[in-house]
Design a protein around this nucleic acid. Structure first.
Lengths: 151, 151
DNA sequence: ACAGTCGCCGACTAAATTAATCGGACTTAG
DNA sequence: CTAAGTCCGATTAATTTAGTCGGCGACTGT
């Protein structure tokens, strides 16, 4: 349905939150969960995934928690999404070799959809967490002229 | 998961198919279903939805079927997607008034995600069925420079 | 050294969405 | 008048997503 999952939302919120707290401050799961009314156990898993992907760094024990692994300008929205959702494909039948899609043989939409997908990838990759923060308060619309041949 | 539903895929395939058959030729559900190995009953509903939205025109009785309602250059990919999926929202908590999202009060990602969504909308709206056909055989990549400040 | 806080992990259940099927009505060319 | 088609709502099946549970391991402070 072309929608991000809740987990991904949570991931973006968390990363954004950490970003807002500075790069040095250790933040724990409970703190974020309470800030945004997110089920703690679920958020925990989300953060663990982000950790595994190297986007954030964990610190064990009491007073432990998480830190951003890099500068917010170096973490793309795409990276966060992919960390949680794995392969982000606009369609099943394209990149997935074992998708045994019945339409494969004659499919007439794969190539154009892949192009659309690539454009979306490009967009998501070009936006960093730092950018999100910026756009969050202001109302800048990063609308782009892409093809622009339709009205 | 940022993926189109099968129904939407079917819709795009069908419209594309009709487009390829010319604007005057009446095409029936079975024909398309067999061409692409799509469950007929399901495709039927998809086509009915496209009909209701005025993208295609139906013709009853034997030798009936469907026709594109307009030129393939005037049918955007977005229109087809929206005909099937209704409101295409990258996130729950934004446009939907009754989504009672628990994160609403402090959500720090709504605005930036809306901007991303708008960009995707723009992309999908700028691409027509006729464009898809073009990109289908060739391998043109309509990748765009959008922000371009990340490597 | 041990107790409490916190991350780590996998299995599980519940809920929601999507895919597909079924049954029957309406329309119309031949 | 009948067969080939669309039309439509209800239902079931399958898949995905959301959230829960229980136990383990790491670390800090006393």
């Amino acid at each position: 349905m072309l929608k991000l999952s809740k987990k991904t939302d949570y991931a973006l919120m968390a990363v954004q939150y950490m970003s807002s707290k500075g790069t040095d401050r250790v933040v724990n799961t409970k703190e974020i969960a309470e800030e945004y009314n997110i089920p703690g156990e679920l958020l925990a898993k989300v953060l663990q995934k982000l950790g595994k992907k190297g986007l954030i760094v964990s610190q064990n024990g009491p007073k432990g928690g998480y830190l951003l692994a890099k500068s917010p300008t170096d973490i793309s929205v795409l990276a966060v999404i992919q960390a949680i959702e794995g392969h982000v494909g606009i369609t099943e039948c394209y990149h997935n070799e074992d998708s045994n899609c019945m339409q494969m043989p004659r499919c007439n939409i794969r190539t154009p959809l892949r192009n659309i997908q690539n454009s979306i990838y490009g967009l998501l990759d070009s936006m960093s967490i730092a950018d999100m923060k910026e756009f969050g308060s202001a109302t800048i619309v990063p609308q782009s002229r892409l093809y622009g041949h339709r009205t």
